[in-house]
Nucleic acid binder design. Structure first.
Ligand SMILES: [Zn+2]
Ligand SMILES: [Zn+2]
Lengths: 520, 520
DNA sequence: CAGGCATGCCTG
DNA sequence: CAGGCATGCCTG
């Protein structure tokens, strides 16, 4: 379109629409007799400067405390009425407030004079309501006389990385000192909990926040009945924050247990010997969860967290490799970056993905209830990254920890299984089982082995020469190859007889029999 | 900062600054006698609609042609003076104009009536300045009488993918028909070049653009003396656009050749048999380039372009895998995304990286001159991605094409070598050479193998039973293990004697000897 | 650096 | 799906 057209269009539009509006009546014809002389009453020398501070009206819609940053709406002159309107409209404000455990100051601000940590514990180790010290600390509360009681519509902990945490609050009638005191109380509450409860874990759950608000008479808060706790669209997913997650099996008060169909299918196998799943990448596998129903109806969740099996890697979160966390991968379509970092995915829509940064990643889902007549509920997962992925797990062994939890992340049971996401589950399972047997034997053989010692051996068997030797050799000619295997089998046969079927001679013999068959 | 402070600051500032400005004189004291009746002269019925087109002033700062998109600055009413100010400030405008080879239209626009291609060639095959037809075509030039001669500050070709190309121009005093004509002339110039030069390659170099502007009297352009040409930070690098790059060796007029030190080093090896480099990722390797010096001093460049060796992949560009193109990799630090896609890097600072999108990627660098007494110049490269990278080359074979080129990308010579970026160059080289010998034989081994056939064998050797068998077995007891290896060695020993030291019996025997030693 | 394992992937 | 190759990487 040409510029001139644009111009014409704009002029047309403006004029047409202005003319369509109700227009002012014709001006009156005014006949005026005018006589002009200076009005001394309006001279700056008389009335002062034209623009005085008092004349320039200015008011704010929202008040930001000295330590608060955000949008500050000010109205100037005629704008003051708009500002007043906005102010009286009482729209809720949202704050994100950062707290630091172990950093208490006299005025609760980051830069305030520090209270000695010991004193802080003293302050907090007893009932905070009855504490004179506490009252002294909060006496600078400076509550504006004109304001109403704060009313909280929503509160949650949106970040928690000791010693720091961040609380998000939606509220009205708040004032800065109120918010600061609230943070102080959250810390105090947790420290008190730490010293009374034996559990040393610090967590800021929604329940905690609610309890703090309810108990905290000092702060004089109204809590909206519909206050957002977990039903918020961005619900609070409890995380587990241990550097090295515990992986010990623990049945707990509800006899928590997990089961995996030992028969597997073509995409995955389960080794009962190693308690380990071998699975092709991107394949679904199901886990059955069993637990006793408590009398008090607790809503249970199950968390599945992959961790590195070896102690030297256990503290590192297991994250998806570069390739398998690409947003262009089919199974990552539309997922947020955090979730793409998870190697384990649940097929449930209710699954929530937690962890990230340098924290362990895990998926949490509501456990639900067994169907009538069932003792277990089944949940289906899949992995999207292989143990062998160089930019991810990089060939390290991985365990999967299932924990039975309540909505706050309290743990009531734990089960561990090994997991290997690979291309040849069967081969790798067999190999690892063989490897395991080499070093551990298995129940049967073990009792038998004891028998060895007690059994009289023929003089030409050496009781100490029982190490396993893997021989890899290459010969030319099938005839020769068969001859060697036959020879080896013969040797093992003598040993089996001489040593009363003793292991591992017996299994070596059996294997060689199979190998020989394969040459027919 | 407190809200009240902000408010005070604002009021202070506004009042202070208003008061510092020249203020209106005291109002006059006015004595008025008023008599009111309708003023018919102001009635819409008399004077017409309140807001007339003529009253709404509107002017533009920059003029966008009918086919041009971009920001159009319009001033309304009082804004017209601002618009005029901006217009007269003559800031340079930047345009990106797309042209299409083979699509000529009467008015040079994309949607104009097409000129038959044959006619277009007629038009362009002769001197464009003297062409009546050309003058006719440009007679609709519509040059605004008020404007000055266009002045170009910068011009370059920023995209070139036949048949389309995009020219970027910084200029003042331009008008749309001028820009369209310029594009037409660029096409005409190239077609003329194609028909006069024997070389059919079309390229828009900076030299070309300058030549077009200089020659093009019709367009009446001023070229700023400091006009950006090749010294621009983003210089024009000629690209090669063949879907499947040619890979035939071609010495060309200057006897172009490449040499690679056949002795290699610990990080790379060269197979003369396969004309292939085997190299560990991220290792430098050098190529010596040789060519005859022409009488006319041509500035030569060498281009190195990796391509897939197999015909079914040769049309695809060889790009770096996801992992090795991460900006977080040390060797990618600070590189633009395009360059990170290149698997081949030159250590020269003068190297330029071309290609991208679905075009083949290559690195071009000035060849330079041999040092005194030398016949060749050496350039050093390295690869940053392995043949085995799954998200990149994915185990496909890759060739490296070196071409001798001038600054416009005209090719004067070509050499191909195979390349394999891997973790075990020696092993892989040996293997591929063995494989090659198996199918092609080579003087030494082949004659020996022939000898086998001619040699009289003992009756109890089977000439067909010569396959290699890898035997993996497990026995218990060191004594037994040694016995088996000894047995195998004995078998091979007989064969070696019976078959006149024939391979692979001999090497099996040697291996077994070593294995047996390891049991001592 | 050779030997050999680990593990993806191709082939029949 | 088993067998076996391909190829990175670890170990001595
Ligand atoms: Zn992966
Ligand atoms: Zn790579």
């Amino acid at each position: 379109m040409k510029t001139s057209q644009v111009r014409r269009t704009i002029i047309n539009k403006v004029c047409t629409e202005l003319n369509e509006m109700e227009c002012r009546p014709p001006i009156k014809h005014v006949y005026i007799t005018v006589e002009v002389k200076p009005n001394l009453a309006d001279d700056p020398l008389v009335v002062g400067e034209r623009y005085s501070h008092d004349n320039l009206l200015c008011s704010w819609s929202n008040y930001l405390g000295q330590l608060t940053s955000g949008i500050l709406i000010l109205g100037l002159k005629d704008g003051t009425s708009t500002a007043k309107y906005i102010r009286e409209n009482k729209s809720t404000r949202a704050y994100r407030i950062k707290g630091v455990f172990g950093l208490a100051t006299e005025d609760y601000s980051k830069d305030g004079r520090a209270i000695h940590q010991k004193k802080m514990f003293e302050l907090c180790g007893v009932d905070i309501q009855s504490q004179t010290a506490y009252e002294l600390a909060t006496q600078g509360l400076m509550r504006p006389a004109t304001s109403k009681t704060p009313l909280i519509y929503g509160i949650r902990c949106i970040d928690f990385k000791l010693p720091e945490f961040t609380i998000e609050i939606q509220c009205i009638n708040e004032y800065e000192m109120y918010l600061k005191s609230l943070i102080h109380d959250i810390v105090a509450y947790n420290i008190k909990k730490m010293t009374t409860d034996s559990d040393l874990k610090v967590l800021i759950s929604s329940q905690d926040l609610r309890a703090i608000l309810d108990e905290d008479l000092q702060l004089n808060t109204f809590v909206n009945d519909n206050m957002n706790i977990l039903d918020d669209v961005e619900e609070v997913i409890p995380e587990q924050y241990d550097d090295v997650p515990s992986s010990e099996d623990y049945s707990g008060p509800y006899n928590f247990d997990t089961f995996i169909d030992p028969s597997g299918n073509k995409n995955w196998m389960f080794s009962a010997m190693l308690n380990k799943v071998y699975i092709i990448n991107h394949s679904n596998f199901s886990v059955d969860f069993k637990w006793d129903f408590p009398n008090d109806k607790i809503e249970f969740y199950v968390r599945a967290m992959p961790i590195y099996a070896s102690p030297q890697d256990a503290h590192k979160p297991v994250t998806c490799c570069i390739q398998h966390s690409q947003s262009t991968e089919r199974y990552n379509a539309g997922l947020p970056k955090l979730q793409r970092q998870h190697i384990l995915r649940s097929i449930s829509q209710h699954a929530r993905y937690t962890g990230g940064a340098d924290r362990h990643l895990s998926v949490v889902l509501p456990l639900g209830n067994p169907q009538t007549g069932m003792e277990t509920v089944r949940h289906t997962f899949n992995f999207v990254c292989k143990n062998s992925c160089v930019t991810g797990i990089n060939r390290r062994a991985v365990d999967l920890i299932f924990t039975l939890e309540d909505i706050e992340g309290n743990i009531y049971g734990r089960r561990k299984i090994g997991v290997r996401v690979c291309s040849c589950p069967k081969r790798d399972k067999t190999k690892e089982e063989e490897e395991y047997k080499k070093y551990h034997g298995q129940p049967g053989p073990k009792s038998k082995r004891r028998k060895i010692v007690s059994t009289k051996k023929l003089s030409f068997t050496d009781p100490n020469d029982v190490g396993l030797y893997s021989i890899n050799l290459e010969v030319c000619g099938k005839k020769n190859a068969k001859a060697i295997i036959t020879y080896a089998r013969n040797l093992m046969a003598s040993e089996v007889i001489d040593r009363n079927n003793d292991e591992p001679f017996r299994s070596c013999f059996n294997e060689l029999t199979n190998t020989l068959k394969s040459y027919e």
